[in-house]
């Protein structure tokens, strides 16, 4: 069967046209891309969740504020943060707990957000890379990462920082070996490990 068959609208399920109408309230706005060029988008959003399985409303405390979410129960915390709350600093590298790029804190404990359902979080507090700097003051580890050139492509960086920052909270003067243990699950293909370790040692000195 070819894919150019006429579209028929089935009763009982939501129709395409109906769906579009229903989605009409959502954002039309300006997307600023980092290269400084503004792209004006006027199309309607389709981020409507009126599908089976039914979506549910939850609230979640993220980076100090309570956020409302309307998600499918199967939505991972990583997807909820990234796609619903637009906190895209948290990265997904493998989506099965093998690379730690998605590391966030739940009640201060480093957690793989790709292996956690958003609905599991409950009333615990989530901290992401976006919430690590306090009152516009960078965490010393963020400063140290910049000073030591501990980023290359930068995709593993948020996970590295969330993991190492937790170590420093609990162990203010870690040895190199303790840092290696803490970061032993964080994958980096560019090879930032030596500089990540140096940056963490340096940040510990400055904290």
């Amino acid at each position: 069967m070819k894919n150019k068959k006429p579209k028929k609208e089935k009763s009982g399920s939501i129709s395409r046209r109906g769906f579009l109408k229903g989605a009409g309230i959502a954002a039309a706005g300006t997307v600023i891309i980092g290269s400084g060029v503004a792209v004006l988008e006027s199309r309607k959003s389709v981020q409507n969740k009126d599908f089976e399985p039914k979506t549910i409303n939850i609230s979640m405390k993220v980076n100090g504020s309570i956020r409302q979410l309307n998600i499918e129960p199967r939505t991972t915390l990583a997807d909820a943060l990234r796609n619903e709350l637009h906190l895209t600093g948290t990265k997904v590298g493998c989506n099965r707990g093998a690379c730690s790029a998605c590391t966030v804190w739940i009640n201060g404990i480093p957690t793989l957000s790709c292996m956690t359902l958003a609905i599991e979080v409950g009333d615990r507090e989530v901290t992401t890379i976006e919430g690590l700097a306090k009152n516009d003051r960078l965490h010393p580890l963020q400063e140290a990462f910049m000073d030591h050139d501990a980023t290359q492509c930068g995709f593993c960086t948020p996970g590295m920082i969330m993991t190492a920052a937790h170590l420093l909270e609990h162990n203010p003067s870690p040895t190199e070996k303790e840092i290696k243990v803490a970061l032993s699950g964080n994958f980096c293909r560019c090879g930032t490990h030596p500089k990540v370790i140096a940056a963490t040692l340096d940040a510990a000195k400055k904290m």
Binding site: A26, A27, A28, G29, V31, I33, G34, E41, S42, R43, K44, S45, V46, R82, N83, H86, L87, T88, G89, T90, K91, V92, T128, I129, E130, L132, A133, L138, Q142, F145, M146, T151, G154, F155, T157, P158, I161
Partner: peptide, 16 residues
């Protein structure tokens, strides 16, 4: 990169 504000392709979100 250290604050998570770098937008990679995986992070791009457009209306619709």
């Amino acid at each position: 990169k250290v604050t998570g504000s770098a937008v990679f392709t995986a992070d791009v979100q457009l209306p619709g």
